[in-house]
Structures are given as structure tokens and as C-alpha cells.
């Protein structure tokens, strides 16, 4: 009797995460959908004019902004982070690893506002002086985000690399491959699904970052034409105007959040797919795979 009660209670608690996710979805959609409906999804997504006071809501410049800045962040963060992960998982002697890994994990906790602040005091003036433009820019945001996503990518990549069985490496070395050849031709391909997941999650982090980006991106609502142009991202759009928005304007910000939410959820699903189902060598036809997935789901 009591055991059944405990079981029931725990079961309800177990659904809290899903419940919260559902609650968030419901409330964001409920607030944002009216504006999406009124403006039209196409016009809202691809409209170039954001004049909230006149009731004109087009977030195309922000979509471009978020995309450009995220690509920039990946271009800077991914190579460095992967190199770091390879060194930590494959090359570093145990003592160096014991020092470097905790250091990176500790630094993963630095608040995003601090990163943004570093951008403001060091990077932005440097860009203004040496590259021209106002300073706050696509470039500044990309660099800061690139640094911010590194700990995320490094952590997950190390896990992926360490999951590759030792025997793979030993086999490769036994065939006469050098350490680097082993890493490049055996370990990296074997860990690919995990590495892809790491990059996708880093991408999600870059897309979702708000305060640091606001501080260094300049925030003007215009499609940028150069990396020294200021941009506004989707997240910045929400945070900057939420303080004073009301009525349809506020709802348009929630609609922006819906767009962001959908993109991030899609990325997360991709990442968990990549992590769960490593690529097979021989690809089964699509219908076989779908059937397999269904039967797995039913079990």
C-alpha cells in the first residue's frame, strides 16, 4: 500500500521535467501566437521591417543576425575546442590532463555577463581601432560566443573520444600507423556522432546566449553587410525590448521566442539523434529504419 503510494508519487515527480517543458511551450505559444497569426508567419519571418510602435513586425534581420553570429562562433570555437578535446583525450600525459581538464571545467562556470564585459572592455575598442566600424559588431559577438561555447564542446567531445574502444587504437598502431594517423583515420571517424552532437549543442548555446551578445553586438536592426557591422540577434531582440513592451509589441517578442524555441528544439533533437544512433556502414532502406524505430519505441 505504502510502496504503491511512493511509486505513484515518484512517477508524478518524474514527469516534472516534461511538465515544465510543456508549460513553457504552452505559455510562450499562447502569448506569441496571436501576433504570428495577425502578421502571418511568412511576413513575420521574412519581413525586413521591425517597427514595433507602428505594429510592423518582421524579424528577418534578427534571423540573419543570429545565423551569422552563430556561424562565426562555430568557426572560431569548434576548431579550437576540438583540438583541445583531442589533446586532453588522446595526447596529454596523465599529469597534464589532471591539471587542464578541471581548469576548463571550472572556467565553464564563468557567468556569460562576464564574457560580455570582457568583450566590451577589450575586444570592442580593439575592433574599432584596428578594423574600423563602430566596434560592437558581428565579429565581436562571434569571438565572444566562440569562446563561450568552447567548454561545452570540449566536455562532450572528450566523452565521445573516450568512448572509442582502446582496441581500435591498438589495432591501428599495430598496423604501423602513427599516433596522429590513428587519431585522424580511426578515432575521429569512430567518435564522429558524438563530436557532431557536441558541435550541435555548442550551436544551441551560441544561438540561445543573450546578455553577452547584447553587450558586444551593437543591436541595430539591420541586415549586416560586413563583419564589422553591428547586428541584433533573436535573443537580444527579446531581452532589449521586453522591459518596456506592451500589447502587440510584447506579443511579438513572444513570437520571436517561439521562433527561437523551435530552432533550438530542432537542434537538440538533432543532437540527441546524432548521439543515440551512430551512422551505420551499410545503410538500411528508410522504411526498414522507420520500422525499427517504431518497434523500439513500442518496447
Amino acid at each position: 500500500m505504502r510502496a504503491a503510494l511512493v511509486r505513484r508519487a515518484l512517477q508524478m515527480i518524474a514527469f516534472s521535467a516534461i511538465g515544465v517543458l510543456a508549460l513553457i511551450t504552452v505559455f510562450i505559444v499562447r502569448e506569441g501566437a496571436p501576433v504570428l497569426y495577425k502578421t502571418g508567419v511568412g511576413h513575420f519571418l521574412f519581413g525586413g521591417a521591425w517597427r514595433p510602435l507602428e505594429g510592423e513586425f518582421g524579424i528577418w534581420p534578427m534571423i540573419v543576425g543570429s545565423t551569422v553570429v552563430t556561424i562565426g562562433a562555430l568557426a572560431i570555437g569548434v576548431p579550437l575546442a576540438l583540438a583541445c578535446a583531442i589533446v586532453l583525450a588522446e595526447l596529454a600525459p596523465p599529469r597534464a590532463r589532471a591539471l587542464l581538464k578541471p581548469t576548463i571545467e571550472l572556467l565553464a562556470g564563468i557567468p556569460s555577463v562576464v564574457y560580455g564585459f570582457m568583450g566590451v572592455v577589450l575586444l570592442v575598442p580593439w575592433i574599432r581601432e584596428h578594423l574600423g566600424g563602430p566596434g560592437p559588431s558581428v565579429l565581436a559577438a562571434s569571438v565572444i560566443l566562440g569562446i563561450m561555447i568552447m567548454p561545452t564542446i570540449i566536455g562532450i567531445s572528450i566523452d565521445a573520444l573516450q568512448a572509442v574502444p582502446r582496441s581500435y587504437r591498438e589495432g591501428s598502431r599495430a598496423l604501423g600507423a602513427t599516433e596522429w594517423q590513428t587519431i585522424r583515420m580511426v578515432v575521429l571517424p569512430a567518435a564522429r556522432s558524438g563530436l557532431v552532437a557536441a558541435v550541435i549543442l555548442g550551436m544551441g548555446r551560441a544561438l540561445g546566449e543573450t546578455m553577452a551578445v547584447i553587450m558586444v553586438a551593437g543591436n541595430s536592426v539591420r541586415v549586416p553587410h560586413a563583419i564589422t557591422d553591428p547586428v541584433r540577434t533573436l535573443t537580444a531582440n527579446i531581452a532589449l525590448e521586453m522591459g518596456y513592451a506592451s500589447g502587440d509589441h510584447a506579443r511579438a517578442l513572444f513570437a520571436t521566442a517561439i521562433v527561437l524555441f523551435v530552432i533550438v528544439m530542432a537542434l537538440n533533437s538533432l543532437a540527441s539523434l546524432a548521439r543515440r544512433r551512430p551512422r551505420r556502414r551499410t545503410r538500411r532502406p528508410l522504411w526498414r529504419r522507420a520500422l525499427g524505430a517504431l518497434s523500439r519505441g513500442a518496447r
Partner: peptide, 21 residues
């Protein structure tokens, strides 16, 4: 999967949600 999704939700969306809810 729900927990993973929740972990990926940007903090600004938590902020908006917390504000309306």
C-alpha cells in the same frame, strides 16, 4: 529526452516564461 530538451532551452525563454507564468 524531456530533460535534455529543457537543458537546451535558452535562458531568455525561461525568463519570458517566468514573467508571464
Amino acid at each position: 529526452f524531456g530533460a535534455e530538451c529543457l537543458a537546451g532551452v535558452p535562458s531568455i525563454i525561461f525568463g519570458l516564461f517566468g514573467f508571464v507564468f
